[in-house]
Write a protein that binds this DNA or RNA. Sequence first.
DNA 1: GTGCCTGTGCTTACAGTGTAAGGCCTTACG
DNA 2: CGTAAGGCCTTACACTGTAAGCACAGGCAC
Lengths: 218, 218
Amino acid sequence: MPTARRSPLTRERVLRAAVRLADKHGLDALSMRRLAATLRVEAMSLYNHVANKDDMLDGIVELIIGEITLPTPGGDWKAAMRTRATSAYRVLLAHPWAALLIVSRMNVGPNMFRYIEATISTLREAGLTWAHTDRAWNAIDSYIYGFTLQLQNFPVEPGEYASAAASFLPMLPSAQYPVLHEMTTLVANGTHDGTHDFSFGLELILEGLDRMVAQARR
Amino acid sequence: MPTARRSPLTRERVLRAAVRLADKHGLDALSMRRLAATLRVEAMSLYNHVANKDDMLDGIVELIIGEITLPTPGGDWKAAMRTRATSAYRVLLAHPWAALLIVSRMNVGPNMFRYIEATISTLREAGLTWAHTDRAWNAIDSYIYGFTLQLQNFPVEPGEYASAAASFLPMLPSAQYPVLHEMTTLVANGTHDGTHDFSFGLELILEGLDRMVAQARR
DNA sequence: GTGCCTGTGCTTACAGTGTAAGGCCTTACG
DNA sequence: CGTAAGGCCTTACACTGTAAGCACAGGCAC
């Protein structure tokens, strides 16, 4: 008698389920037992498809790196890098666990390599030296990851900045923190919106690089 | 008969021991039981001085934030921000667990508030609007944390970049990753050192802000 | 002194973690 | 049909954070 056959586990299915679980319930909820449960399987069965938990985490990072739009070398390098950065930013927001994993482990995989290759070849074709390419790539990524992490760590929904600021004010006596107090008051007022702006710092960096390129051409 | 009295536990002593333990053996080794052991005490005794592990982690972040040199408002704002950034960078390197903790939790405490106050008042006195102050502060910190995390995550000691690059080369066939392959070859050669450079991106951001200030003055 | 309260450190216990070791059962192939 | 391989399972272990409650000390009021 054919028992109700479930489709067999694969590395792919395990990783996709892991991404779904982390997206929905956060990185802390992503334990081997819980992940197994979502696949209607016992924890140890996962180990037939991933070497261990670290391998699984590496796998889901690789998966979502593949979601980032690659910059295309050869055209407008600034636009390409902007596209890349905002795409990465969007992907990191869609998978709020990802930025932390990326910055806390070594990521080596085809998707990551493709991502790097597209990035540095774009910068090279823009006319940057090897040294500048390396540093530019690093500066942009530092900003992307740092910005995203700070944003996600900030436990206030956009649209609630004013009310959150108001509730923070009592902790910030103006005698000790005059400027911080004033800024918080302005946010509570609605005079200053206080929202984070990803493109601000990104453009600062891109424009700085642009000047470098222009200078090198002269 | 007076038993050998050990000095009593305090929050201060607990937190300092936690910093020492994390510095020496990493964040993963910082468990309540191990921390208690270094103080010759049982794990549960710690809970008389910290509310729980999260509270303890918040405490050690506050402690090391206090180690950062504050920027002094009023003088050369760019130099002040540079000093602040490099001091923060050095502190984060001295406590390799810190950056990850900072970007993965809300930090509220007097040291953190003082740090923010000094930062934004310096930027305000430089002539930036509230909006620009907020964004500038955020951009700089994003870069600091992102850069540090990427650096610490990169498991190669400075001085071993060349040999590490050489051992990576086989993973990077030039057919698929021509530019990445070439850059890695140059690092293996010693032609390009491949080291990370904190000040590169920092100066990009500071110069961008400088131009904003100049433009606003006109 | 006695009684009491408070605070500090301890023991025990529980639910949850990653994963090593090994057993069973289905499938594929000779 | 017999055998081998592999996927999934159970069991077990060492470790985690921390709740509950005990033991004992010091300080205070009387």
